[in-house]
Design a protein around this nucleic acid. Sequence first.
DNA 1: AATTAAATGAGTAAAATTCACTCAAATATA
DNA 2: TATATTTGAGTGAATTTTACTCATTTAATT
Lengths: 257, 257
Amino acid sequence: MTQFTEETLESIRNHFQRTIPQLSINCVIFRFDGETLQVPVVRFLDEDVWNIPGGFIYQDEGIYEAAKRILLEQTRIDNLMLSQFGTFGSAERSVAKDITRNPKMGFPQDIIDHFSQRFVTIGYYSIVGKEQRKLKAGPFFKEVKWVNVAETEHLAMDHPQLVSEALLALRSELQSRPLLSSFMPETFTIPELQKLYEAILGRPVDRGNFRQRILKTKILEKIGTSKQKTGSRPPILYKLDQKNYLNSLSDDVKLGF
Amino acid sequence: MTQFTEETLESIRNHFQRTIPQLSINCVIFRFDGETLQVPVVRFLDEDVWNIPGGFIYQDEGIYEAAKRILLEQTRIDNLMLSQFGTFGSAERSVAKDITRNPKMGFPQDIIDHFSQRFVTIGYYSIVGKEQRKLKAGPFFKEVKWVNVAETEHLAMDHPQLVSEALLALRSELQSRPLLSSFMPETFTIPELQKLYEAILGRPVDRGNFRQRILKTKILEKIGTSKQKTGSRPPILYKLDQKNYLNSLSDDVKLGF
DNA sequence: AATTAAATGAGTAAAATTCACTCAAATATA
DNA sequence: TATATTTGAGTGAATTTTACTCATTTAATT
């Protein structure tokens, strides 16, 4: 049985006081490590279920700012453009089923009651590159880690559903615009980019045609040749041509695979 | 100065008690009258600003059910599939700026305080055909009417923004699936359908190519010839081929104009 | 040093789709 | 009966998509 100091409990109660009741935010952040998609998950205090990072909205902040703050606090991920993928609020949706009600946590009744309320959550998603690796747990959280999207079926509450809905939104965004800037490292190769597309779309993409379409957009700028030790022709290194990339966004350029 | 009976005030206070605080729902329902897109707007009590239909979520109902109930109560529109287009919640977003705080309404302070809170709203949209015309105001509302989308810039609060965001979502939906069932009458002609597409997309569409693409999907079934008195060749009447239409939804058929 | 394996860069032709346009058909009106 | 108007249907050029082939580059192997 975990014991909380009165100070911790007061801090939690104070947080409730300052936030909008029965409304939460969850952030599904995809990270591509070169092979698979992963998302950060957090563990609350001594609980043993993992959660998508999430929290509550202060009375004096907008929901977008709240999403960025929560993400920063719980994972240390910063400077990211977030997009909404949906708001979820069935009548039965509550936090307490999975956490706090757990006897071993030993929460006082008023806090259990708070979490037993029905909660509506606003879902945001984004994507980062593999250079993003440092995660640091925030207050009230014991641990943060990356977990493969394929292994998210055991997350708390309806969080597995949040992950799949976010992935659908990401997929749909990928279809309608050249999605490159935020989640690729400074320089990258076309085969690397193709692997990202395949990870998001969940299916293989023809190599030659992928290259052709990407190059036709002129959003890539040749940098040099990558040096690798794979015993095959080294791929060309590219970086984003910022000017053409921004143009392509406003010109509604689609890659469409 | 409007006078409210104590019974009315109690009914309002009771409603607040049973709903989720600081969270609302708004429904942007597009209607196509053959020429332009319109949305229903409502007028609250004796106020003179018009609002997108909206309301609050009972503690024991899901947000989707709440949206359908609110729409039914305030407009009598029923049996509609609604889709979310976004959730809006800047820190300054409040109801009271436009209504209730109006002195001539004469609300008691506790109700003004309630509406002065910051509110987050979940936006839903849908579309109906011109056969949908009956609107009936619900309790607390004095009037409901259809207004052209082009004339929604004077709606209350951020409701003009809700309309444009909903229109963007509708447009995007139109691009990715053959959008026909819910908003066309039982039988219709291809020129009529084209006018709907043009209204939603906000631009002209080539006549011949539109016909070609629609017919290629085989989701239309020829019924006969329409009889009109325009002094020109009468267009062919079609109805939806339900089986092919459902197939086209699962097969991810795109019309893409 | 020459050969091989492996993956990349580049290109090409057929198929499919999009786009711009012409022409015939059907109807009310003059 | 002729005319104006709008719809139905079709066609060919342009473009895009798709399914490939082939040359290039490098590390490892012989």
